[in-house]
């Protein structure tokens, strides 16, 4: 199991250690994608204000968030339980948000 990344890295020897650390190249690629996605969102909202611009931001922004959580915050390399915890937190937020908005719409 790929579970104990940093845990075992502490005790691993020099030559094993490298494999537990995400390559810099990967993180740099993620960064470039994040910049490109930002550019796409800005372009869409400036060129096509309204539904297209808003729609692009609505789709692209969560993708950017997911990339940051998965790679920069290492969730991709952690035990699944961390991802589940994260999703539960988001589900609670979505629930509260949904209920509050429904409440306001139907007063």
């Amino acid at each position: 199991m790929e579970s104990t990344t940093t845990l075992s890295a502490e005790y691993a020897h020099e030559d094993h250690e490298e494999s537990h650390v995400v390559p810099d190249r990967t993180q740099f690629n993620v960064y470039v994608i994040l910049i490109l996605l930002t550019a796409a969102t800005v372009f869409a909202s400036v060129k096509f204000p309204g539904p297209i611009g808003i729609g692009t931001a609505l789709v692209v922004t969560p993708v950017k968030g997911t990339l940051i959580a998965m790679f920069f915050m290492h969730l991709k390399y952690e035990k699944p339980v961390f991802v589940i915890m994260f999703l539960v937190a988001l589900a609670i937020l979505a629930l509260v948000m949904g209920l509050t908005i429904l409440d306001y719409l139907h007063r």
């Binding site: 909202s45 808003i54 922004t61 968030g65 940051i68 959580a69 920069f72």
Partner: peptide, 18 residues
């Protein structure tokens, strides 16, 4: 620090873009 970045990612479209 990444969370601080993550939150800003969502603030940008909310106030500046959409």
């Amino acid at each position: 620090w990444h969370l601080v970045d993550l939150i800003w990612i969502f603030l940008l479209p909310l106030f500046y873009l959409t």
